[in-house]
């Protein structure tokens, strides 16, 4: 499903980024980088909204010709960004949401791991495996 998955720290540096190996990696890095502005915009808009639209899931950040970029922000302001192939029309909002939830759960497991130093790059194999499973389902 996903072609690129990234975890961005509170201070906006990458904790983890991985994309499918067949394509130009740098392109995805740029894409994720660009999306951070949209994430920031959405977060600051969220603070002002009086209505309870305070969900963690941010929805579609922006579409490009070939890809769609989705975002999610945790209460600790860690951002998850996922790039999805837009030719895959079968993918619904709900599925994206549940993928993000899975990612969030995995991330909390990483945080609770005593061998992980908060703020370091994520090198956990369990997390890696989970991301791989999210990327494979596509192809």
């Amino acid at each position: 499903m996903a072609v690129c998955v990234a975890v961005i720290a509170k201070e906006n540096y990458p904790l983890y980024i991985r994309s499918i190996p067949t394509e130009n990696e740098l392109k995805f890095h740029y894409m994720v980088h660009t999306s951070l502005d949209v994430v920031d915009e959405k977060i600051s808009a969220m603070g002002k909204a009086l209505v309870d639209q305070r969900e963690l899931y941010l929805g579609l950040l922006y579409p490009t010709e070939d890809y769609k970029v989705y975002g999610y922000v945790t209460n600790s302001k860690v951002k998850f960004v996922m790039v999805v192939d837009s030719s895959n029309t079968a993918l619904r909002d709900n599925e994206i949401r549940s993928m993000f939830r899975k990612l969030h759960n995995s991330y909390t497991d990483v945080m609770c791991n005593p061998f992980y130093n908060p703020g370091d790059r994520i090198q956990s194999r369990a997390f890696d495996g989970m991301v791989t499973s999210m990327m494979i389902q596509v192809c």
Binding site: R54, L56, M111
Partner: peptide, 17 residues
């Protein structure tokens, strides 16, 4: 505290202030 701060508010809405 760092781990709990990540884990407990998983299902809650975002904090406004």
């Amino acid at each position: 505290g760092q781990a709990l701060g990540e884990r407990l508010p998983r299902e809650t809405l975002t904090f406004r202030e």
